[in-house]
Write a protein that binds this DNA or RNA. Structure first.
Ligand SMILES: [Mn+2]
Ligand SMILES: [Mn+2]
Ligand SMILES: [Mn+2]
Ligand SMILES: [Mn+2]
Lengths: 219, 219
DNA sequence: ATATTTTTTTAGGTTACTCTAAATTTATTT
DNA sequence: AAATAAATTTAGAGTAACCTAAAAAAATAT
């Protein structure tokens, strides 16, 4: 139905819509996110519009149609299930799996993905703490708190990370921070909002606000 | 390095070379096998030749170069490992896995395939009894016997099937014949070479020579 | 309300892969 | 050894997905 390229556009539009709380996504946003020139993006928007996967009016940005959204979510489902397969079964670490999942998510068999889901025990979250949509597209919708917003002596359990570049994830590995880790905020420096935290039951160190802002916790 | 399309051509050339015991593969052979018009095949042959993946002289057919052969075998390795994953872990039957593996074999990560190999326990054969090349391209090379060539009262263990269309595999499912099954030839009709066989320890029935010719056994 | 800047679209091209129709080469028959 | 048939290549074209440069529209600043 949709080509690999079209699938990538839909996924990108979906993720930009989430970041902008469903406001129209602009051509330039897509161009920047996908590293494809704006003129090329315009071409593809016309095509996706003709296929009724997006709502598109010249100069007005785009929104996913119902069909487009379902398709986007089904690709995200595949991406996250494959990521979990790679960490759980093949023992890759969370900083290695994204790129491979970018390819695996385009494997078309619906049956394959349902079997994979069962094989993994119908998981609810991927290795980065992102929710895995079920086969109807529904996904867990918890509200998490930014680590940087916790008060002194407050504890949180790492739920998700916002920034997911391998370099950031590898840094968290060094700090022993992963999904599920309990973090307690012990102190905050007024000047730069850096935090002194304890991780798990052992170590105690300081992290910048830049890092804290990219970690979401449940209380 | 090589595109999905190029990979499919190399795989096709490899399999035709095996069938013709390494004689040059013709443009028309490829055209028929890949269901792509001969003119298009010629275009691609020029391209693969420029990349030194095949030996190609106008009108003279093609052979894989050393590099081309290594690449073809690495794709076959991926194909067969994914097929085994699908049967062993996701519980698909041998008649369902080929199509999915046709897509999965193009996922590029070398690391992924090495981990998958380990996860499956470094298997030697795929669900159809075909040998899985190891990471250096070496594969088991047993000599098997055609079921149709067994003498009366001779036994064999099913090792591979030649024809691998889903329809044929499903028929074998019905007959309870799979890789590993022991078959004993009890009688042969002179007129049409059809065989009366016993399968495993139970059933006893007749199969046509057409079917027998597509089953290879070890003695 | 104009002028300037920024964003987006259009116009015209390129590459990868496919096609049909015509030309050429090789193989087979007579 | 021609003549005919079959296989292969060339020529010309189309679609998908990209690009740069120029034009047009929208947003911002004066
Ligand atoms: Mn990812
Ligand atoms: Mn993820
Ligand atoms: Mn197969
Ligand atoms: Mn196989």
């Amino acid at each position: 139905m949709a080509s690999l390229t079209e699938e990538n556009y839909l996924k990108s539009i979906h993720s930009l819509m989430e970041k902008s709380s469903s406001a129209p996504v602009t051509t330039n946003d897509l161009s920047a996110a996908m590293k494809i020139k704006a003129a090329s993006v315009t071409d593809m928007l016309k095509k996706l519009s003709a296929k009724k996967l997006i709502h598109y009016k010249k100069y007005q940005g785009v929104l996913l149609t119902h069909t487009g959204k379902l398709l986007a979510i089904s690709i995200i489902r595949k991406h996250r299930l494959w990521e979990l397969f790679l960490t759980e079964k093949l023992k890759f670490s969370w900083d290695q799996v994204h790129e491979m999942a970018e390819e695996l998510e385009h494997v078309s068999s619906q049956q394959l993905i349902e079997r994979l889901d069962a094989f993994l025990g119908h998981p609810k979250f991927d290795p980065h703490g992102d929710p895995i949509p079920d086969h109807n597209g529904k996904m867990a919708d918890y509200k998490f708190f930014n680590l940087s917003s916790l008060t002194i002596n407050e504890k949180g359990k790492v739920a998700t990370v916002i920034e997911q570049q391998p370099s950031f994830l590898k840094h968290l590995n060094k700090l022993n921070i992963k999904v599920g880790t309990t973090i307690k905020v012990l102190d905050r420096v007024d000047f730069d909002k850096s935090l002194t935290i304890s991780v798990g039951s052992s170590s105690l160190f300081s992290i910048s606000n830049e890092i804290a802002k990219n970690i979401l916790v449940s209380k």
